[in-house]
Write a protein that binds this DNA or RNA. Structure first.
Lengths: 141, 141
DNA sequence: TTATTTGTTTGGAATAATTCTAATGTTGTG
DNA sequence: CACAACATTAGAATTATTCCAAACAAATAA
């Protein structure tokens, strides 16, 4: 409990009751839940909980690196002609997607007994063009 | 043109006019477009084109491996407590997400001048549990 | 050719995830 | 205590995607 609070504080997030409970939930439930699952599982304990709070909190936690938002391409799915293998970098400012070469013969066999039909490397961050713009204006959050 | 048609045929997709135009578009526009972008860019040339057709076709192409659907977690974003680095395997049958160990110090530097804030390995396929069930009943498509 | 079957496209309605907004509530500070 | 800053709430709004029934096209059989 205390550790949850101080982890939040260390990350610069005020440990409100809701935030503590949501982060606690994420630590204890390693089930890769959706925002809705978090909401449903907590609303008995916190009857006034709003879904927007769950989204706000999950986004805040993800921004500080306390949780991860599993690979999504926001806001809508992007499609790519399937040429040679390559990784994808998504810029969180301009939302552009860049390809980068990636050597896939180092396939990580991972889970035995599973059929892997596709594999992808996904990076997120800020692209060069947006970094340049940022230097001229001011820094990004 | 002929090659587009025969690629579709080889993949077992009937080369209807719409499908040919959409696949052609994907080959010529390596911009990782959304379904909506494909729709908007083609509807002048194909005035009756329906968005559902774009979705149907993109899904069919992706299923046959002619294009890729860039890493999304469907239908809604999943969150994960950010412990040690690991990859994620999503089962396309039961939608469960499995962690697998992944060594991230082999970071692929990729694009120079870009700030990489997060990196993830994403696999999709069929998990062991669903494979087992499939053997008892019948095969998956 | 015509009739029949099979598969495709269309357009709009339905669904569902996420974001937005305005009002209310809470916390910390002077 | 008052005020400012921030958080939460509830529900409406937005938007991507799927669903559905009807119209259409192509392929096949009679």
């Amino acid at each position: 409990m205390g550790s949850v609070v101080s982890e939040l504080e260390n990350a610069g997030i005020k440990p409100s009751y809701q935030r503590v409970r949501i982060f606690e939930y994420m630590q204890m439930n390693r089930t890769h839940p959706t925002a809705d699952q978090v909401f449903l599982d907590l609303k008995d304990a916190i009857p006034t909980l709003a879904k927007a709070t769950v989204y706000n909190t999950l986004h805040a936690l993800a921004e500080k690196g306390l949780i991860r938002e599993l690979s999504t391409v926001q806001p809508s799915t992007r499609y790519d002609y399937a040429a040679e293998d390559h990784g994808h970098f998504t810029c969180r400012i301009c939302n552009r997607i860049y390809d980068f070469p990636y050597d896939f013969d180092s396939r990580h066999s991972a889970l035995s007994g599973f059929v892997v039909e596709s594999q992808e490397i996904v990076q997120k961050g800020i692209c060069q063009a947006c970094l340049k713009k940022a230097q001229q204006n001011s820094a990004f959050p």
